[in-house]
Design a protein around this nucleic acid. Structure first.
Lengths: 214, 214
DNA sequence: GAAACCATCGGGGATCACCCTGACCGTGGC
DNA sequence: GCCACGGTCAGGGTGATCCCCGATGGTTTC
């Protein structure tokens, strides 16, 4: 297992880059480094490393800019985000942009080497606590809290009707599905729209879709 | 660290459930088990375990049904999916439904105990190879390919109109936003619906929403 | 037992969504 | 010069949506 593992380190603090290189030791070969977005893109394109260690907060647009630019041309490039931040929005943004992992800078040398190897092998690597953010965002559970405030103000019947309307059923289809008259459907829809402060069923579709109620 | 760790095992094979219980040993207390969706929901509601071990393929609707039902009433329940399948769609479906982890049945006892603990503590747990699926789906890279085929057939103006319509704007709102007449909007909407083979703006809203075009 | 909801309906009407046919103009290709 | 296409618009139609007014019967709350 002594394939040369090549890495580019992108971070705006030179001292930190030096520290990373020292910690990585002889198992990993740092073939390039950069301190801002433009240089990072150039260096990565020139060296084509196995893995890019990428700081999230970077002058010139942030780490996501580097991801976008590089992946446009070389989509197989693998990125491991390395940041002091453990804020959900940072993690989610960089994963959305295509990073294959995210670890905080509290990580030690051997752990970082292991993480780099796993990213190189196609795995995804996360500090345990961070993985939760990603999955929450993915499953949409983050927004669930404020859904209920609105959603709870609907009666059971209104929710039923709302679900069908949001799915695109016409009033008369809802009516025959629920064995009630069209007029009753209209009346429920009116209540739903009023309670949710929406003005049309199209907004309702979007509302429900955003909250994955379909 | 000897808090009682309670678990419910849901799997349609009784023999497998027995095997899991034996493997888990004394560190974990199996407070309930079930072999189909309905029983699973009842048992989980009755026992409120720390973690539910959930098979993906289950008679009566599949594991996602259990997730939906239980999370509706008890959103804090934590699920660890346990399956023979490592297919991307299975993994993604169950994560979307709210599972906090996914491991294959090739896992051994101690690993499973460790995974259960981590899920209980709020972490997300994945077999390394599977994490990639989740992140790919999250970053939207899976669907990008077939979006463009349909989307590219729309003209620039049609795309503009489509975006506004899908957001829930009425025809006349789109008209005044784009400084064109309602009739022109109608005409573009017709083209969009025809080209995308959709039959109403509700479907359009969902189509755009699924592809994150909003 | 009144008050406050909820679910169920109706009439009537204004507006909107969607479709069809047909039209005009400008750009670009052949 | 003709033709195809994209963007603009019109008339006219049908059915759907949404709101206004109302009504009835049932439950729960005080």
């Amino acid at each position: 297992m002594s394939e040369p593992l090549t890495v580019v380190v992108v971070d705006d603090h030179a001292m930190f880059r030096t520290g990373v290189k020292a910690e990585l030791g002889s198992d990993v070969s740092v073939v390039g480094e950069a301190g801002d977005v433009a240089h990072a893109v150039d260096v990565i394109r020139a060296t084509l490393p196995d893995v890019v260690l990428l700081d999230v907060h970077l002058p010139g647009g942030g780490g996501t800019e580097v991801l976008k630019e590089v992946l446009k041309r070389a989509p197989e490039t693998r990125f491991l985000a390395l940041s002091v931040s453990d804020a959900a929005e940072d993690v989610i943004a960089v994963i959305r942009a295509g990073a294959r992992g995210y670890v905080t800078k509290t990580i030690d040398g051997p752990e970082l080497v292991a993480a780099i190897r796993r990213v190189r092998d196609g795995d995804a690597v996360f500090s345990p606590r961070l993985a939760g953010f990603v999955l929450d965002a993915f499953a949409g559970t983050i927004q669930v809290a404020d859904v209920d405030e609105d959603l709870d103000r609907l009666t059971e019947r209104e929710r039923e009707v709302m679900r069908l309307i949001a799915r695109g059923y016409a009033y008369k289809e809802v009516a025959s599905t629920l064995f009630i008259s069209i007029k009753t459907v209209e009346s429920h829809v009116s209540s739903v729209l009023r309670k949710l402060q929406l003005s049309s069923r199209y907004e309702l579709t979007r509302w429900a879709n955003d909250r994955r109620l379909l």
